[in-house]
Each structure stands twice: as C-alpha cells, then as structure tokens.
Simulated assay, not measured.
Amino acid sequence: MTNKTFLALAATLGLTGAALAQDDPIKAGFIYVGPIGDGGWTYQHDQGRLALEEEYGDRVETVYQESVPEGADAERAITQMALGGADIIFTTSFGYMDATNAVAEKFPDVKFEHATGFKRDHPNVSTYDARFYEGRAVLGTLAGHLTETNKIGYIGSFPIPENIQGINSAYLHAKEVNPDVEMVVTWAYTWFDPAKEADAARAMIDQGVDVILQHTDSTAPQAAAEEANANGGRVFTFGQASDMAEFKPEPRVASIIDNWAPYYIERVGAVMDGTWEQQASWGGMAEGEVVIGEITDAVPEEAKAAAEEMIANITDGSYHPFTGPINKQDGSEWLAEGEVAEDGELAGMDFYVEGITGDIPN
C-alpha cells in the first residue's frame, strides 16, 4: 500500500492526526534555573526527569535546557521548547511564572506545569509545589538539639512565601527544643551562586552560628562549613533539595530531599492517557515528595529519635508544623492554641513569627 493510499483510507475511516500518531512518544520538556550538576534543586528535578524516562521507556522523550535566567530569557527558552514539539513543559523555578503563562497563551495545545508558582491564567497551565516547611520543621528540631552557641543560620534565596515558611518552621521547631536559640537570616538574592552562598555561610560562622540551613541550591555552604571544621570549628549543615551526601557524616548531618519523580510520572501519564487537567498540587511527606535523608551518627540519639518521631507524625497527618499557639513577630496572635494554619495563609506568608529579629525585605 502506498503512503497516499494509506492516508486516503485513514481519512475514509475517520482517523484523526492524533490517532495516526498514537505510537509517537510524548515529548516532555524541562526548563532549569541552574545547571543539572548543581547538587541541589536543579539536580533533583533532573533526577525526576530521568525517573520519567525509566518509567516509560520509549513511550516518552525528554528534553531540557539548563541555567535559564528568570525573565525574558525564560520566555524565549520556553517558546523554543514549545516550537520544538514538546507536549508538556515543566518550568522549574518560581521566577518563570509570568513567562510560563505568556507562552501558554500562545500554545493552547501544549500542557505547562510551573513549579512553586500560583498563577494559572490559562486552562493549559498547572502549578505544583512541595511542602518544604514540613522538612524544615524536622531540620529545625535537629538544629535546636545540635547548636552549642544557640545561634542557627538560614540562607534564604528570595523573600517569597516559600522561603519565609521554611525560616519560620525551622525557627519554631528549633526553639521548641532549645528556648535560647536565635536565628540569623541572610538573603542571598539568588537560587544558585556558589560564591555568594559561601560568603553568606562564612559570615554566619564568623557571627558564631554553628548550624546552617539553606534555601539555595549549591553545596558551597557545606564546603564552607567543612573548611571551618578543618580549622578547629564545629559547624553542622543540612543537604538542600538533594542529599548532598558527599559531605556526610558531617558537616552535613541530614537533608531535605525534593522527590519530584512521582509527580512527573503521574502528570506525563495523564497526558498519555488523555486525562490531564489543570490543577494546583502541593504534596509533602505523605505523598513522598518531601523526604528527609539519612540522619548521620554525628547527631545524638535523643535528637535523632525526636526527628524521626516528627517525620512519622507529619507523614500520618497527626501533626502540622504550623499549629498554634503562634504569634507574629510583632507579638500579635496568628494561631490560637491548637489552631492549624490554612493553606491559603501559608501560600501568602509574608511575616516572621515572634522571636525572629530583622525585617523581611521587599
């Protein structure tokens, strides 16, 4: 049968272009804010992409572009990926929000998934996030046990609710086990810049901080702590986004791991079977999206047991990290005794809790 005869027969039978191409793989694209070798955020998203390939084999084709700046460059990169035939595009940084929606309007047949954002201006745009604050509660508990100087540090990327949730959660749980604890917050104004991250960590160490958390993507703070410890210091750190296992057993004594694989597999599967719909997803420990990496033997048994109990309670839903009584920084009541924060409040969090000093920059 000639090609022309086959097409004529297909038309007679009423087959659509989609039916003719049903054996074509789904093309899934990924836009990354950092390099896939960053050891943190982008690395972990790329692990999710690889899990997608392993799950579906030749039924899926994946493409990615790394180190795409937020802003106009992002819109160009997303557009090129859509023009390149992507069926679904995951844009994996908060600052891609407007660019994602702008491109989605021009390509209504392409599905777009934006990580950590909240805008879904078009029916082909979904958002997805993880309840990182659950993991920060566990790390804060460990930090409160580990500090000897009573100073813990937090390197923030940008002053957006996602970061502020983490700072508040870590502080509240550190203070729960150590009422004398103070938190030093430094804003790096970057997701990935090893030099800035290292400088922030060193400055904290100079101020007496001996436990450092971070919401930035590189392993530079781990290396800075390792350097301090080699010179007689005692500084502990936690892996961010990925396990950062090369710094075990210390300074990295535990980690918060973002496991995006289940979400990517689910959403690409929905495109394959035609069930994809717009949604806003916010998974956490219960969904397997927030995982605490190995707690090393550098952590005292009492602290490890407290952390493991909290993991179990958050996972089974018997404990929420933002449960009152909790006051805002100015002393006004936010949550009464036993009251649990609603998701809408957390999604717009723009204040520190009582006890944290300093202002949140605009």
Rank of each mutant, 00 (worst) to 15 (best):
T79W: 01
D217C: 15
L20F: 06
G29E: 13
E354N: 14
A245R: 13
I257P: 05
G288H: 08
E162I: 11
Q279R: 08
M244S: 15
D359A: 14
A198M: 13
P300L: 02
F6E: 11
E308K: 13
T91K: 13
E182L: 02
Q240P: 07
V125M: 07
I295R: 09
E308W: 04
D23V: 00
P221F: 02
T141C: 14
K175Q: 13
M97E: 14
L146E: 03
Q207I: 05
M349I: 15
G338H: 00
A82N: 09
E308I: 09
H145P: 09
P35W: 04
S332L: 07
T149G: 04
D24I: 00
T16F: 06
N313A: 15
A305N: 06
I256W: 05
K151F: 11
T116K: 00
E345R: 08
I212Q: 09
Y56V: 07
Q165V: 07
G288R: 03
A102E: 01
D350Y: 04
V209F: 03
E182Q: 12
H114G: 14
D297L: 04
A102W: 00
T315A: 11
A18S: 11
W260C: 01
A298R: 12
P361I: 09
A77N: 00
A241V: 06
Y133F: 15
V33Y: 04
N229C: 06
I26H: 03
A74W: 00
M285T: 07
K196P: 06
G17D: 15
W41I: 08
V235N: 03
P262H: 00
A230H: 04
T216N: 13
E294D: 07
Q44R: 11
A130H: 09
E246G: 10
E70C: 05
A280T: 07
N313G: 04
T357A: 14
E176A: 14
G232H: 07
D330L: 07
D199K: 08
S255M: 12
N362S: 11
A270P: 03
V33P: 13
N231T: 06
P194L: 07
